[in-house]
Design a protein around this nucleic acid. Structure first.
Lengths: 375, 375
DNA sequence: CCGGTGGTGTGCAACGTTCTACGAACGGGA
DNA sequence: TCCCGTTCGTAGAACGTTGCACACCACCGG
C-alpha cells in the first residue's frame, strides 16, 4: 500500500500497440550469482505484502476452507501486485505438480504432432500443463526420457508409440498414472488408446477389391522386439491386410522394408519385378506411399491408370493437390483428446484400465482407380 | 547386503528378447493415497542402505570434494541397487534443475520440429534435459507457456518465433538465460539465432532473374504487431525480395495473404488476374507455394513451362517427387544446434548478447524454369 | 456466567535436496 | 606429550510450498 511506486511497473495490462505487457516473473538460480539479481517472488513476499501469514496465502491459492472474503481480497491483490506465481517444483514436493508429461518418439514423425495437439486442446481449460519430451526410436533412450519426466514430478504420463517392453510399462503404470498411445494388446496398470489399424487395413483392402484389384501388395515395417499380442500399429495393419485378403479369397503379398520414403521405393521396385506385378500397392504408411509414387514415375507407370497407390496415416503432404493420395485417416487429434481425457480420469482416482479404440476412416483421393485391362 | 533377495528385481539388465529391463523408479503423489503405494526412493533410503549420512550421498551425487574411494563405492552400489534417481524439483529448490525449456509455436509448423531436433542433438551429451511446450500463435498464450516453463524452474529458455513484445522478452531475459530463434533485430538481454531471410529472398530473386523472369510476384504474410526493427522471418523475406527486385531494376509486386495453403492459393488467383500476369510466383513459404501449385493446376498452367513456382523453408513435402519444389533451405537443424550452444554458453556465465545468423541455401528442383516465350 | 461451537487465522513440521559448518580421527613434527 | 594440519564424515539450515493441529474470537444456549 505504502510502496506503490515500486510496484508500478509490475502490473499487467495491454498497451496501445496491442502488445501484452505483463511483467515476466522469472526464476533465478538460488546461488544468486547470475546476472541482475531479481529474485523470484515467493509466497513469503506475498504474505508480507498482504500482512498475513504464509498459511493464509497458501489457503487462498488452494481455495481451501476457512478464508474470509476480506482475506481473499487482500491476498489476491497482493498476488496481483507482485506478479506472484507458485513454483511448481516446490509445490510438487508436497501435493501435485499439475504437470503431465508427454513422451513422443520424434517430432518429425507424421501424426505424432497431431496427437499432441489433441492432448493440448483437451488439457487447455483445466489446471494441468503438459510438457513434451522426445524419446527417439529406440527403447533405452525412450526409457531415459520417461524417467526424466518422472524425475520432474509429473502427475501423469502420455506415452506415444513406445518401443519399450510391456512389463516395464506395467511397472511404470503401477506407480504413475499413464496412458499409452498406439500400442495394441491391453494392459493392467495403464490405459491405452489405439487406432483400429486392423480395421483400417480392412477398409483399404475392401476399397481396392471393390475397384476390381486382385493383385495387391502391402509394404510393411520391421516388427521390432515386442512380443505378441503387444504390437505396434504397423504389425496390426499387416495383420488386417492379410486377414482381409484371405477373406476375399486373395493371396496376401507383404514386402517388408520400412515406413520411409526409401522403404516404399525399394518395396515398389521389388514388387514391379514380380512375375505378375501388382495392380495396386497399399503402403503401410503415407510416407512409404510417396516412395512408391517415385518408383512408379521412374518406371513410367501412370497413377492411377497403370498402378493404384494408397497409404495410411493421412499426413499433411497427402492432401496437397500434386500428391492427392488415397489413404486412411486415423484422427490423431481425437486420439490425443481421448488419451488426455483418460489420463485426467486416472488422475482423479480411476484405477481399472480402459482401452479405447479410435475408428479409422477411408479417404479416397486421386491415386486409386480401377485396374487397367492390360495386365 | 543382507537383504539381497528383496532387491533382485530392481537391478537393470537386458533380457534375452532384447527388451530393456531396468526397474522404473516412479514418482508417487505425496499423499500416498494413489494405487499401489510404491514410494519413490529418496536420498534418505540410499543413505540408510549404504549406512552413511545423507550428506555423504549428496556429496557422491555431486562429485564433491571429500569422499574416500570406499565411500564412493558403497554409495554408488546402494544407488544402483535401489535404482535411485534424484528428484529434479527438490534439486532445483537449491541449485539448478538441469532443465532447459523450449517454447515453440506449433508442432505442425513446418520447420520448428527440425529446430527442436537440432537442440536435442546438441544437448544430448550434456547434463541438461530439454522439455518442450507449445505456445500457439498468439502472444498471450505464448507468454503463459513461457511462464509455465519458468514455474517449472528451467535453468534457461529457447524461444522459437515468439509473437511477444520485445520489452517483455528483454525483461524475461534479464532474469533467465534465454535464446530467441527467428526474431530479427538484436537484443540486450538474450541471444538470437536467425536465418538470413533477406539474403535467402535475394538468392531466390537472383535465381529467378537469372532464368529470365522479370515479372515476379511474392506472396507474404501479415506483419503482426511487432514494431520494426524487431521483425519475424516473413517480414525480412519480403524486405529482401523488394530490395533484390529493385537492385535488378524490376518492380516489386507483393500480395499479402498468409503462410498457408489457402493463402498461397488466393494469392495466386489474384496474381493470375493481373493485367500482365507474372511468369514466376515466389511464395514466402513452401506451404503457400503448394497452394499456388493448386491454383496453377486449376487454371491449366503447366509448371514450370507456363509458370515458375518457388517457395521458402524446404519443408519435407517439398522434396517428394510429385512436388519437387524449388525453395530455400534454412537448415533448421543447424539453427537448433546453434541456439542450444548459445544457451549453454549463457548457462555457464556469459552475459553479453550474441546474435547468430544462419546462411540460407538455394535448392533448385523441378518447379522453376525459363519463362515461356508466349507471355 | 460458563462451556460449547463454528468460523478464521497462524505455527510448524514435513517434502527431497544442497552445501556450509563443524567435529572426529589420524599422522607427523617439535 | 602437545599441537597442528589434513582428510573424511555428519549435522542441520535452507529452498518454497502444503496442510494438519491448534489458538483465538465471537456468539449462543443453558
Amino acid at each position: 500500500m505504502d510502496n506503490s511506486s515500486a510496484d508500478a511497473d509490475l502490473r499487467g495490462d495491454m498497451n496501445s500497440s496491442g502488445e501484452w505487457q505483463t511483467q515476466p516473473n522469472v526464476a533465478q538460480a538460488a546461488d544468486g550469482s547470475r546476472s541482475s539479481g531479481t529474485r523470484r517472488v515467493t509466497i513469503q513476499d506475498v504474505a508480507k505484502e498482504a500482512r498475513v501469514s504464509i498459511s493464509a496465502v497458501s489457503k487462498v491459492l488452494r481455495d481451501a476452507y476457512g478464508v474470509s472474503p476480506e482475506m481473499r481480497a487482500k491476498v489476491t491483490e497482493a498476488i496481483e501486485r507482485l506478479g506472484y506465481r507458485p513454483q511448481a517444483g516446490a509445490r510438487a514436493m508436497r501435493g501435485r505438480s499439475y504437470t503431465v508429461g508427454v513422451m513422443l518418439a520424434a517430432l518429425s514423425h507424421p501424426f505424432q504432432p497431431e496427437i499432441v495437439e489433441g492432448i493440448t486442446d483437451e488439457l487447455e481449460p483445466g489446471p494441468y500443463q503438459e510438457i513434451l519430451i522426445t524419446g527417439g526410436l529406440a527403447a533405452p533412450r525412450q526409457q531415459r526420457s520417461i524417467e526424466a519426466l518422472a524425475d520432474r514430478q509429473v502427475d501423469g504420463l502420455v506415452i506415444i508409440t513406445p518401443e519399450i517392453g510391456t512389463d516395464w510399462l506395467e511397472r511404470l503404470g503401477a506407480g504413475l498414472p499413464a496412458v499409452v498411445v498406439a500400442r495394441h494388446g491391453g494392459a493392467v496398470h495403464f490405459d491405452t488408446v489405439v487406432d483400429d489399424d486392423r480395421g483400417g487395413a480392412r477398409l483399404m483392402v475392401d476399397h481396392l477389391v471393390g475397384l476390381g484389384h486382385r493383385n495387391i501388395v502391402h509394404t510393411s515395417h520391421p516388427t521390432g522386439s515386442l512380443k505378441r499380442p503387444f504390437v505396434l500399429s504397423h504389425t496390426a495393419r499387416r495383420d488386417g491386410y492379410v486377414a482381409a485378403m484371405k477373406r476375399h479369397g486373395l493371396e496376401p503379398d507383404v514386402i517388408e522394408t520400412s515406413y520411409t520414403e526409401e522403404g516404399g521405393y525399394l518395396a515398389a521396385v521389388e514388387a514391379f519385378d514380380r512375375p505378375s506385378p501388382p495392380t495396386a500397392i497399399f503402403a503401410g504408411a503415407d510416407i512409404a506411399a510417396v516412395g512408391v509414387l517415385r518408383a512408379a514415375e521412374e518406371r513410367g507407370l501412370r497413377v492411377p491408370d497403370d498402378l493404384t497407390v494408397t497409404g495410411y496415416d493421412n499426413i499433411n503432404a497427402s492432401a496437397i493437390g500434386r500428391v492427392a493420395l488415397t489413404t486412411i485417416d486415423q484422427s490423431g487429434h481425437l486420439t490425443g483428446q481421448m488419451s488426455a481425457r483418460l489420463l485426467l480420469e486416472r488422475l482423479s482416482g480411476r484405477t481399472q484400465p480402459v482401452h479405447y479404440v479410435v475408428a479409422p476412416r477411408l479417404v479416397v483421393r486421386a491415386t486409386s482407380g480401377v485396374p487397367s485391362r492390360r495386365r
